[in-house]
Design a binder for these strands. Structure first.
Lengths: 204, 204
DNA sequence: TGTACATCAGTGAACGCGCGTTCACTGATGTAC
DNA sequence: TGTACATCAGTGAACGCGCGTTCACTGATGTAC
């Protein structure tokens, strides 16, 4: 049971940096990207409104970290779905992994639209360490596995990331904007889209 | 040579509504979605800062109109590219139309990223007339034509919009965020993506 | 054709707000000796 | 083990800004008679 606020007796927070990012994620998720402000975050975190400057150069840098954290959440969701697959046939397993990764990506867009939005805004100014796990990296691992199992050609392996990412990212974006109908309709459409990814990769 | 500003002698502007939307488009295109404000637009348009309220309920409604106008610009670009096609074989023509429409969409994302962004944000509050021309409508016309020419099946006609739109919209979004490398690389990738759309529609 | 008057489309001053950021400061911590 | 002191991570007051929106107003326009 961890609390974001420091207890009022202690002067030092100890984990302010992490707390601010976590609070940022919550704020964006429930009130949208533009509601992110240093002041708000400070209040929520129980800290003076200038404390954040000990950890972030400015608002832009904080946003970039929240963006990165969102991608990491997405990456973890993809990995969790992949880990849950029960399949012994290695070829079917490789296909199922790509499918589940893509479906998790779409689900993230649909269920957490504001996080999806900030995750894929590029903040130029700050140089961050690459996120871990990275959705892009996971997709590439899936394609590597498909290639190793001879399910896709070398050329498809090369173009695959672009094709799969465009399609899944596009649909996830449309779903996050509620352009794809009800939740039920969106789930049906997601199946069509994922099948279409496999067809594009010449797997089916 | 039309000017956005009214001449200082005249009290009535005459076309303030249109001028504000046009100024909004320019503002978003060059300084991003968040730079849009009623005050800024009023200054640019040469009008007092409250004049806009005679034409728009509030900022949100103005944004929705700018968003709609962006989609119309995109629609016009798609139609312009379609009109420029020189091809007599009706089946090849139908395919070329889909291709050019998709390519125009991607080009819009790449070249006018800020307009692309505002075009596909959904503003719930205001009910607007649907845009004309609408990118979605154009895509559907292309698919209708492919179906009439027996180039796609009835089932593909049904799923086609989703598949084509996801893929093209996804890639355009990635391109607009500069996730697809240089302009040259992006153009090469666009070809791969559009070919992949055709494959998904079982045309090639 | 001329005029009274309702309506429309502007003005300009003012309000209150939340924000990013700066500054000089202080409490807490850790380390060298 | 005890202490001096540098460094780190907070505080709180203050700044200036741009913004959306309201209000009472006024100039321009069009229409009924």
């Amino acid at each position: 049971m961890s609390t974001l606020k420091k207890s009022p007796t202690e002067f030092h927070h100890g984990e302010l940096r992490e707390s601010l990012i976590t609070a940022g994620i919550k704020q964006v998720e429930s009130h949208g990207l533009n509601s992110l402000s240093l002041r708000q975050l400070s209040i929520v975190t129980g800290v003076s409104q200038t404390a954040a400057y000990r950890h972030f150069e400015d608002l832009e840098h904080l946003k970039a970290e929240v963006s990165k954290a969102s991608r990491e959440i997405l990456g973890k969701m993809m990995l969790a779905r992949i880990a849950r697959i029960d399949e012994s046939d290695p070829r079917k397993l490789a296909i199922a992994r790509l499918w589940e990764a893509g479906d998790a990506y779409i689900e993230f867009g649909m269920r957490r639209p504001n996080l999806f939005e900030i995750a894929f805004i590029s903040y130029d100014s700050p140089k961050l360490k690459p996120e871990d796990p990275s959705p892009w990296g996971i997709l590439n691992s899936c394609l590597d596995e498909l290639y190793e199992k001879k399910l896709i050609s070398a050329e498809t392996r090369k173009d695959g990331p672009l094709i799969a990412w465009s399609m899944v990212h596009g649909f996830a974006g449309l779903a996050s904007q509620r352009f794809t109908g009800t939740v039920r309709e969106t789930k049906l459409s997601a199946e069509i889209v994922l099948n279409s990814v496999l067809r594009s990769l010449k797997i089916r």
